[in-house]
Amino acid sequence: MDLYTMICDSIRGFKSNIRKDPITNQNVSSAMAAELTIVSTVLTAAIMLRHLNVVLTILIVLGLVLYLITGMPLISKFKREQSDSLNKMMFYMILTLGILVTSIYWGFKP
């Protein structure tokens, strides 16, 4: 399957992933806008790694492109993970605390 059909298929898949609503058109268009925002901003942000290493940046950007396109309906996953459930908030909070403290403490140790 070529890349173009894959993108088209995933965009068609939006409708099934979005909640059934009287004005579904609007929801689908906003979901697509959100999807495109995520893809474009994440890719643009990844280019900033060029300040560290150019070869690494090229590899990471290519990897991200492949990942983002193959896993295309991303926004439903994002939305599910950012719900108002206390357990999910707690999980991400502890995760962030762990990563932050570990990377700062061991990452910069002289």
């Binding site: 909070m93 962030t96 403290v101 910069f108 140790k109």
Partner: peptide, 24 residues
């Protein structure tokens, strides 16, 4: 000093609502 930076930075994230606190 670095550890205190990590902890205070986390507290800052919580106090202003940057991720992972943006939902709440």
């Amino acid at each position: 000093f670095l550890f205190s930076f990590g902890l205070i930075f986390f507290g800052w994230l919580y106090s202003v609502g940057l991720p992972p606190f943006h939902t709440i």
